[in-house]
Design a protein around this nucleic acid. Structure first.
Lengths: 251, 251
DNA sequence: TTAATAGTGTCTTTCAGACAATATTAT
DNA sequence: ATAATATTGTCTGAAAGACACTATTAA
């Protein structure tokens, strides 16, 4: 937005190439130890019958983040800022604007990434008619360029667990170290050493803080009752919790 | 882009809220050991007389990245894909679309981040009339929300030097370890221990590879002639080159 | 009882950073 | 000659990861 040409153009919106701006949301959650993404079924052309990321047009007076939260609320049937949706972490992911990515017209989509604790199935009716949580391993062949957007969201999520405490966004307000470890295992797709993970999490300043309470019962198949923790005040993890076995595929 | 409403809207672009999509580019380079950003002087309202990031409207048939590279080429007077601009690293940074960020109309700007080796001053004439390299410490009070975009670019650049070999994008194809260290010092704003930095860089697989050559002369104020290296094939640094002294400000 | 899990202890290896030492070159 | 720089060596402490061990609880 800098040159003279732009200023002159600014006077008449009709001189711009017609373009639409949408948001698409990659919403991740962990259900039963498996990473899931929220997808909707497209009823209409184009890509009718295919699954897609929830999304829609940005309205006139809302910010991009507000549009993303609104779309997420519409699809899950939950209201933002209340109950569990209030605990959802939302961040901008990237924008996608290749000509032809939408066959109807030029569409620039701003993708958002959301981390949610385990939520109920999307309610039927309304916009959420075709919404469902899908294991990421089964989320292929999406409409538009949503496969690439989902892949970018997964990459971002896996990286963010390393150096931020955002794994806590996937669990309830109070959680055990084992539950937190299950999040890492689900997002990274590999098991972590329980003992080392436990000591590591407690050693990072501000990652978690003890509630003083203990879980009401032990594990499903036995074991002592675990202590409960809540998210600490750290915004970055120092030192980071690095993924194992990244030696290959780096070059 | 998923609901019925959207599909219907798709038929008539005039039904969309008028919106423009631009790209803005944060172009960083290191000149004489100081981190600089490429800025232009705005001649026109709004923000006439203020400095701004180079940018402009995305054209109909180009991708977002192509638009960013085109704007960068126009402002620097260099042609993309040739000479030094071919060595420029360009990546998407984030998108900015708050209502009111541009007083003329709704504008969504996709910001890009570029790392360039030391380039000549922008040529006079044409779009680059008011373009100049400005030390980042003096780049405040920019037009629109460009202060925030620049800050995001600096954050990203500082973080990327830690775990990617992108510092090599700031130096010529062949460089010495000291030149690479000067890049880190300029971007991070703190001096690094020469001996430890040297050993660290050479110990990270694929970060740099020796050319077998030696610089034609020693340092400006004396010292032996340093060996020359070129960028290696690593895309990520393992282990990473972490910034010192981040204990504070994390929480 | 049996098996699984929570939590802690120990050891080895790697790495960051402080510090030192030597060789080389511009001035 | 002097000072600055390149490069390498050494040492200490932090941290990751492997492994072991004890206590507790569901079934």
């Amino acid at each position: 937005m800098t040159t003279e040409r732009e200023f002159l153009d600014g006077y008449d919106p009709r001189e711009f190439p017609p373009v639409a701006v949408t948001v698409d949301v990659v919403t991740l959650t962990v259900r039963d130890g498996v990473l899931h993404v929220l997808l909707v079924d497209r009823a209409q052309h184009p890509f009718a019958g295919r699954r897609a990321l929830p999304g829609g047009f940005v309205r006139e007076s809302e910010t991009l983040a507000e549009a993303a939260m609104r779309e997420l609320a519409e699809e899950t049937g939950l209201r933002p800022g209340e109950g569990q949706l209030g605990a959802v972490h939302l961040e901008q992911l990237a924008s996608y604007g290749d000509p032809g990515r939408d066959p109807r017209m030029r569409v620039i989509s701003v993708a958002y990434l959301a981390f949610a604790p385990s939520l109920p199935d999307p309610r039927a009716g309304g916009d959420a008619a075709g919404a469902a949580w899908v294991p990421v391993s089964e989320a292929a062949g999406l409409a538009f360029d949503h496969d690439a957007i989902l892949a970018a969201g997964l990459d971002r999520a896996r990286a963010k667990l390393e150096y931020t405490p955002l794994a806590t966004a996937f669990v309830p307000a109070e959680f055990t170290i084992s539950e937190l470890r299950a999040v890492y295992a689900a997002v990274w797709g590999e098991d972590l050493h329980p003992g080392n993970f436990h000591r590591k999490v407690l050693s990072v300043p501000g990652f978690v803080e003890s509630t003083g309470e203990t879980a009401s019962r032990g594990g499903e198949r036995g074991g002592p009752r675990a202590r409960l923790y809540r998210a600490g005040d750290a915004r970055l993890l120092h030192p980071a919790l690095l993924r194992p076995a990244r030696e290959d595929g780096v070059r």
